[in-house]
Design a protein around this nucleic acid. Sequence first.
DNA 1: AATATACATTGACAACCATCACTACGTTTG
DNA 2: CAAACGTAGTGATGGTTGTCAATGTATATT
Lengths: 125, 125
Amino acid sequence: MINDKLHLVQSENCCEPVARSTFNPESEEIKAFAAIFAALSDPHRLAILKLLSESEGEVCVCDITGSFKLGQPTISHHLKILKEAGLVNGDKRGKWVYYSLVHSKATEIKELVDRVLAASVLSVR
Amino acid sequence: MINDKLHLVQSENCCEPVARSTFNPESEEIKAFAAIFAALSDPHRLAILKLLSESEGEVCVCDITGSFKLGQPTISHHLKILKEAGLVNGDKRGKWVYYSLVHSKATEIKELVDRVLAASVLSVR
DNA sequence: AATATACATTGACAACCATCACTACGTTTG
DNA sequence: CAAACGTAGTGATGGTTGTCAATGTATATT
């Protein structure tokens, strides 16, 4: 009886039993995915990434700071988040720190999107 | 004097002047981008999306609720965020509401990633 | 050595977010 | 019509996030 109820997922009349569980929201893997998207979820960070992608090569913090209305500590804060998400690299040379995109991340994120959102139909075909 | 300081961006010796501005972090467009990524930035929402992608077709809320340790109002809350971001559709039929993926969104998001992160080198080639 | 510069860190604060218990609403069933 | 059910909305609460002012820490310049 109880077992029945368990594997019937709740009720049998709303829809067919569903492919349970997918992935576990408490796993470190998913949390890492979420963190990457969280890094992309701020307009200023998107603009910073775009700035880096447009300037081939490296950009020092002073140029980034000069491009937005935010204070320097706030820019530093955003850069830290981007760095921790693996989206940018920071190289300190002398007085300056030069930031650049981690280009492989774009591919990685797109694969991630596919992994979460791709229709199962596509994977079967 | 003061003008000089303004248009010199800060200093001229750290690196060459940089391709300014990119896109504007205060534009509605970028805020919309950020909102999409924000919708993806929660582990439970990622798991819900994965669940939807694995079950071809539609899934009613009761099945989603049954798949996670969250309370029903919390699931409803997450579904609302996903819906507002255009990631899922909700169809009420009788007592139940069936949610399904908006499949076109995957492509849209990947294009978005390219737009923000693609190396300018690649676009030139 | 003293000062200035470039950037990071800290602490504070307001705004936002995830979650829950409770309630409300519409639909279905009896 | 009344009761039960599935889902959404509300209000409260603890935690997180974006921002700034102030401070710290290297490096460079004088």
